[in-house]
Design a protein around this nucleic acid. Sequence first.
DNA 1: ATAGGGTTAG
Length: 633
Amino acid sequence: MVPRPHLNTIAVTIPTARLPIPCTASRCCSPYIHQAAAESQLISAIDASNGLLHARETHARLLRLGFRDSSFLLAKLLRRLAEHGIPMDPYPRLVFSQVRHPNSFLWTSLIRGYSLRGQLQQALLHFASMRRHESCGVAKSLGSGTQLHAQTIFIGGFNSDLYVQNTLIGMYVECGELALAHKVFDKMSVRDVISWTSLIVAYSRSGNMGLAGELFEQAPEKDTVAWTAMVSGFAQNARPRDSLTFFRRMKEEGVETDDVTLVGVISACAQLGAVMEAKKISDDLHRRGSHRGLVVGSALVDMFGKCGLIDEARRVFDAMEEKNVYTYSAMIVGLAAHGQAKDALKLFEEMVTKSSVKPNRVTFVGVLTACSHAGLVEEGHYYFETMWDRHAIVPSADHYACMVDLLGRAGLLEEAHALVNSMPGEPHGGVWGALLGACRIHGNAEIAEVAAESLFKLEPHAIGNYIVLSNVYAQAGMWEKVLKVRGLMRERGLRKNPGCSLMETKDGALHEFFAGDVSHPRTNEIKAALEELLGKLKVAGYVPNLSSVYYDVSDGEKERLLKGHSEKLALAFGILTTGVGQTIRIVKNLRVCDDCHSVMCFASSVAERKIVIRDNLRFHHFQDGVCSCGGFW
DNA sequence: ATAGGGTTAG
């Protein structure tokens, strides 16, 4: 299954960029030197080329010397040709078409050539064709040359051609030039649904759903694509409930939905953990027969994983004929979040050995978190090493964060700290955050202070860091320092995120509970059910964990605060609304505290329910008094 | 011909 880790030490290896190193003891490095020399000679020749004939000679030399695929040199040649006013057809166009994998620089040179000669339709056609190619993996970034070219066209007229204008908007959106996109839109005398949708997408991508929504309401015509842009826009901007609302509105108004629409809603359900809605969508897809498609399937794997139905995720995964890196990553990440580390690693091995799908950085985040949440330190080291050894992926700060988390959780705080200090590049908030989190678990106030100091500089408004540091102090009984951190928070105008738990009843209704919440219509019943449950749990041996309250108050007050935790309210409500043997599913926005965790363990056996909780990190499956997380959370 | 889609730590 999992290959033997070959690393036992906490090696702090600094990955270096793997450049081809031509020199060996037996072979001289001259071929490389020759090639570099040839390249620089060609550059000079291109720069010096005068007119078509000279350029053709240089081109021939370039081909002879084996540079037929050098986007860089050929782009230079194209630019030179354009500067000399040589018509784009046929020669420069031929130069371009001979390159098998043109990069965006070469594309830009071609487009620029056309636009400089006033052949704007041609320029746009090539622009459109470049965008089609980009989705096949060519560099996504558009050079400043392309932007320049667009402006040329913009100034040069064509404001009556709907197609040209729409293409321009699309291009500006891709360049992130929102204001310019809007300017083109404003100047248009005739707009169609594509113009409106392009602009809606532009605002949605910039995070401005308010304006996107206004445009949507104003648009005179709305088709499936326009509606879908809103549904996925809300999902991508972390507003899953609005996404669902729009989806429902769309159906009410009789607008056709398609696979793309459903992918948007799937993502919303994944964020919410809304199981009932998720199942409805999945059934819908089955009826359409498109549940096994590549994108839909990958989204479903992710959704079921995030809704706590990991077996269902696996079923979809196994049924898919075509899988890519999204599919595998979603499945691996899902298994990791459910604590099924061995399965996650096994799947990764299958991916590497049996499929032709190459893992990417996201896949490795999944693999490393799987190790971390299961305490598999040696395996984590092993996979971290293979990233660059075997898969040519240079670990990013995110991967270092995973390693710090892995070491830290396992109690190797010094090693984790050393890794932070020795990693290449500056550690970001995630890296320090992982270290701080580990300090909370192991009660190390000293290293926690170091981590927090960096975090307060890097992300002064991230409230969680203050809370965790203050909790570390509280655990150690350092109350004066707790007050100091609270003072700091007040100074910076930061307020604690209220704990919130979500429970979905069978009818698909979502019930929300906050800490100490009495606003639920059945609050009295819930309170009574909780009291009754806690009474039974105490008989079974449950003792309230008062050290989970990080306030310096009396024990009685601590117990009262513990009872108000949102997941306990959700649990009590769950017991009211389910029967013995059924599953209670809760989604929580923050980490589950130790006391709630132990209550869930006890309750799963005493109340004879399965309890599945998704917190901000992972899933806990409670059954017969035991949690699947094994203490790692 | 031009608009909407899936995986990421603490």
